[in-house]
């Protein structure tokens, strides 16, 4: 089945690139691997019939946020492998702790019963038309609040970035 094969391929890519993000020494390579992870996740969105979100994901994450990261790394000259290393003991305890989290989450959700869906399957919910109807009918107030949040974030970032704050 081609869809299943695509799912497994994209999953493999996403997990591999995510591991590379964490394990690469050079921050620039880390950012580029994260962009590739985001492309794999966007592929998952397309497989799930969420085309609009896939496009927005690529534009916002790969296009805007990651460029911001690259910009800061270039600006601060962090592209050298100067990161001091944690001790082996700390590293192995971090790996053990996150591995235990994985085991707990998988163990908690493995035997969970699937929700019985009451809606009939509709492949059009990811289109802009339906998303827009939901967004502007049921989520109008959060949508307006998001604009205030973005304004506050912009003012805050400009204030923090200024040379000297009196």
């Amino acid at each position: 089945m081609i869809t299943k094969a695509l799912f497994i391929f994209l999953t493999f890519l996403a997990i591999f690139f995510a591991l590379r993000v964490v394990s690469t020494k050079n921050p620039i390579h880390s950012v580029l691997y994260l962009v590739l992870t985001f492309f794999a996740i966007a592929g998952h969105y397309i497989l799930l019939n969420a085309q609009f979100l896939a496009v927005v994901h690529i534009i916002v994450y790969a296009g805007a946020i990651m460029v911001l990261f690259l910009f800061v790394i270039m600006l601060l000259n962090l592209n050298k492998e100067t990161e001091p290393h944690k001790s082996v003991w700390l590293k192995s305890s971090a790996v053990v702790a996150s591995g235990l989290l994985l085991v707990v989450l998988v163990g908690a959700l493995r035997g969970a019963e699937a929700i019985q869906t009451t809606n009939t399957f509709n492949s059009n919910i990811g289109l802009i038309e339906n998303l827009g109807m939901t967004l502007f009918n049921e989520f109008l107030l959060p949508f307006e609040l998001a604009s205030i949040l973005l304004l506050a974030a912009m003012v805050g970032a400009v204030m923090l970035g200024k040379k000297s704050i009196k």
Binding site: N49, A50, F52, N119, T120, N122, I125, G126, F139
Partner: peptide, 10 residues
């Protein structure tokens, strides 16, 4: 997508 409900995507 599983529940055919667009709220999750919002």
């Amino acid at each position: 997508s599983y529940l055919s409900d667009s709220k999750g995507q919002v």
